[in-house]
Simulated scan of single mutants.
Amino acid sequence: MGIQERKKREKERRRQQILVAAKRVFSTKGFTKATMEDIAKEAELSPGTLYLYFKNKDELFSSLSIRILQYLNIRLEHVASIKKELTVDQKIEAIREAMHDVYKFDPLMLVNMFHLQSSETLKSLSPDLIAEIKNLSKNSLAIIAHLFDEEIHSGVVIDKPSMVLADIMWSMFSGIVLWEESKKMIEGDKDFLEKTLDTAFDIFRRGIKTTLLKKTL
């Protein structure tokens, strides 16, 4: 292994070390109370070292959120790879399962990713990081939309733009996650997310089917 390769691996190892420490600090203190100094201490590094990898706390937090989008892309790509074997009902159920699994993988980061996508924080990130977030988000929506294309063309699903259906599904998912998380502040640890998602996706499934198929429900 050459010197440059070793340096590259060491840089990536250090970056992952910082991300792991940041995840622990954000999980215990929350984004607002956590500081770069807290994260540096957890990572056993100097604060100055953190700034060599991330220009601010927003960028560090956003880099953690990217993992959620990457995992969602992997799950959706798997659904796309077996789409020919699935009915429209099975496709919608597979998407619901993928989204719920992503939530279970890291609820905190998913919730904050939704906040991130609708906040001014994006403007403070580096162009490369913004581009990666946008590309991953667009890819997820494109995969979902593509899953509906064949069903629309064959008349199984109502004749509406597939990207609109994907946007509705994504909005439904993000809205339910954010609402259910806010309800926890009132109702304690009660978790109704899975049941609410099941109901919402069932209503969506029934709503997008053509009249002929609805008669079979």
Rank of each mutant, 00 (worst) to 15 (best):
D89W: 03
S137P: 13
V111M: 10
I92E: 01
M163D: 08
L116Q: 11
H78R: 14
H100D: 12
S140R: 00
D149G: 03
A80E: 04
I143F: 00
A94N: 10
I144E: 01
Q70Y: 13
L72W: 04
N73S: 06
K190Y: 14
G175R: 06
I168Y: 01
A131E: 10
D167N: 13
I74W: 05
I95G: 01
S81R: 01
E132N: 09
Y71V: 11
L147G: 00
S174W: 10
N135Q: 10
L69F: 11
K138Q: 12
Y71C: 13
V156Y: 02
I168A: 00
L136G: 05
L76M: 03
L86V: 03
F105K: 06
I92N: 00
P127K: 01
N135C: 07
R96T: 13
S118P: 15
S162E: 14
L108V: 15
D189M: 10
S137K: 12
L165V: 03
K134W: 13
V157T: 03
F105P: 03
I168T: 10
F173V: 07
A94L: 07
I95Y: 00
E77S: 08
L69D: 04
D189L: 12
D167H: 11
R96P: 12
I74P: 10
D101M: 12
F148D: 12
G155F: 03
I68H: 09
S174G: 14
A142I: 11
I82S: 11
E85R: 07
T121L: 07
V79G: 10
Q117D: 15
A166L: 09
Q70T: 15
T121I: 10
T121D: 06
P161Y: 02
K123P: 05
E180M: 05
F173M: 11
Y103T: 07
L122R: 07
S154Y: 05
E181C: 06
L122T: 10
A98N: 06
Y71S: 15
K91I: 13
K160S: 12
I176L: 13
K183P: 01
Q90N: 15
K84C: 02
Q90W: 12
E181H: 04
R96F: 12
F105D: 06
M109S: 03
L76N: 01
